[in-house]
């Protein structure tokens, strides 16, 4: 996690906030793949926000934040993020990237879902990609309208209202040259509509890419407690800290290599407690037994009693 400072705040349309973040230590922000999101901790929770630029040598990160339910991280940002506010965020994660082998790209967005598509559009312009855009918004609820005016490719359809968007999406899906990949981003209902239209038109699943506004795969996790073997020592593992590092701080050093849950070196025995496995090493049998875990990524969903010296 890195500390960022809010360097700019402005409206991205009704109910939408655009924030510009720069690393607080003055470093250059890391580049990111188009369509990436940034996990931001705000108001005590981590949410993923789409990055708006193409990610190539960025001087800052721009994110779009729609005011969500009261008490959520987005509402907190709307109410509290001012120029100079510091925020903690993880590195950008890519899970909605343009497919390099696509012959053409069809971008479908509803409401705030247009944000990762802006990133795709900038990248498409840079690399000379063939792209078509279909976006819809509620009446008077245009999101990032002027940026869209600027980036819209020759084939662009902008509609108002759910029914019009549904029809425009279906029409666009029905006439794409073979080799096209489609990318959809919007509220859950929109994703379901795109899926069903694509299925009706016999689109292979591999040509359709849907951005879910989920938490990133390796979120900070919840805090939990670990008990060290027979010593009776108790260790508090805060959110955002791995068990491996918490053990380090307590003077218990496990072997390690990848710190990414792939090498299996940081395996530790578990005597009791429920494990939230997040590694790529352990098989279903290991998980069912529940007596080992990989300390670099996995966590406890209850107190864990560990087999450590």
């Amino acid at each position: 996690m890195t500390t960022y400072r809010v360097a700019g705040r402005r409206s991205g349309g009704p109910g939408v906030l655009e924030l510009t973040l720069v690393p607080d230590d003055g470093a250059q922000p890391a580049p990111y793949v188009p369509g990436s999101h940034l996990p931001v901790r705000a108001g005590g929770v981590v949410n993923a926000y789409s990055l708006l630029d193409d990610g190539c040598r960025p001087s800052a990160y721009r994110i779009g934040v729609r005011r969500g339910c009261p008490g959520g991280g987005s509402a907190w940002l709307h109410d509290n993020a001012r120029t100079g506010t510091t925020l903690v965020a993880g590195p950008p994660r890519s899970a909605f990237a343009p497919v390099l082998s696509a012959r053409s790209h069809l971008l479908l967005g509803a409401g705030i879902g247009v944000t990762p598509l802006l990133s795709h559009l900038r990248a498409a312009r840079r690399w000379g990609r063939q792209v078509e855009l279909v976006v819809g918004s509620g009446a008077g609820r245009d999101v990032f309208a002027s940026e869209l005016d600027d980036l819209a490719p020759p084939r662009t359809t902008r509609v108002v209202g759910r029914a019009a968007l549904r029809a425009a999406v279906r029409e666009a899906l029905s006439r794409q040259p073979i080799g096209t990949h489609a990318y959809a981003c919007g509220p859950d209902g929109f994703a379901a509509e795109v899926r069903s239209a694509a299925a009706d038109l016999a689109w292979p699943a591999g040509r359709l890419h849907i951005e879910h506004f989920d938490a990133p795969q390796l979120d900070a996790g919840d805090p939990f407690t670990a008990e060290l073997g027979d010593t009776g020592r108790e260790l508090h593992v805060p959110a955002g800290t791995s068990l491996l590092h918490a053990l380090d701080a307590a003077g218990v050093r496990l072997d390690r290599m990848c710190e990414r849950g792939v090498c299996g070196r940081c395996e530790v025995g578990v005597r009791s407690g429920d494990i939230r496995h997040r590694d790529l090493v352990l098989g279903p049998a290991d998980r069912a037994r529940g007596d080992v875990m990989l300390a670099c990524v996995s966590r406890g969903s209850t107190t864990l009693r560990l087999e450590v010296p």
Binding site: P31, V33, D54, A97
Partner: peptide, 8 residues
């Protein structure tokens, strides 16, 4: 490494 602009 994953390349920054394309993810390749």
């Amino acid at each position: 490494t994953a390349l920054p602009a394309t993810g390749a």
